[in-house]
């Protein structure tokens, strides 16, 4: 999305709803929390879109998303790490072979479980980079830290993941 383009609320919902959902799911491992977050973010976007000044739309959206997520975590007064991953069995859309399903489920379960063991800041940075697909600049803007910090968080996150993963990558 380009900087001089303000989308409508419905566009945001359709274009980013899935990414927001995946962002929350990978941070919490929990579909209910992910659904709550999508609703909350879309509400905030709807309210905030009128006052949005053309600039970095991605940065703006993901700052809203992150704040909504952290507010939700605070409200529930529990750490997201306490939620157990449920796996991705129900979500595989195409029809790969049973072996592929098994391998894919095992690997994704392993990655998801390992992600949940990371400190929040690292997990957030890795998910924004590898799941959401933001650039380091966009992550810096969304999380309100310098780009150098983003770089180091992503790397430390990956380094810890390397030690945590049991499935060969």
């Amino acid at each position: 999305m380009t900087d001089d383009f303000t989308p409508s609320w419905e566009d945001v919902a359709h274009r980013y709803g899935r990414k927001i959902y995946n962002f929350a799911y990978r941070l919490t491992g929990n579909p209910d929390d992910a659904a709550d977050l999508v609703q909350e973010v879309l509400l905030r976007v709807r309210k905030g879109l009128d006052s949005y000044q053309p600039g970095s739309f991605e940065g703006w959206l993901w700052r809203i998303t992150r704040n909504a997520f952290l507010d939700g975590v605070r409200r529930k007064k529990r750490r997201p790490e306490s939620v157990l991953p449920e796996g991705d069995h129900h979500t595989l859309g195409s029809s790969p072979s049973p072996d592929e399903v098994l391998a894919s489920v095992r690997l994704s379960d392993d990655v998801q479980a390992s992600l949940l063991k990371l400190p929040y800041e690292y997990r957030e940075a890795v998910v924004l980079c590898d799941v959401v697909g933001l650039t380091y600049d966009e992550i810096a803007e969304a999380t309100d830290v310098p780009v150098g910090t983003v770089r180091s968080r992503i790397h430390r996150g990956r380094k810890q993941l390397r030690d945590l993963l049991t499935w060969p990558v």
Partner: peptide, 22 residues
């Protein structure tokens, strides 16, 4: 390898009732 493993996580469909009919 780690980067690829995270990127290969399947993308989940957002439940349709969460999105507006636009």
């Amino acid at each position: 390898g780690v980067r690829r493993a995270v990127r290969l996580l399947p993308e989940l469909e957002v439940p349709p009732h969460l999105l507006p009919d636009g």
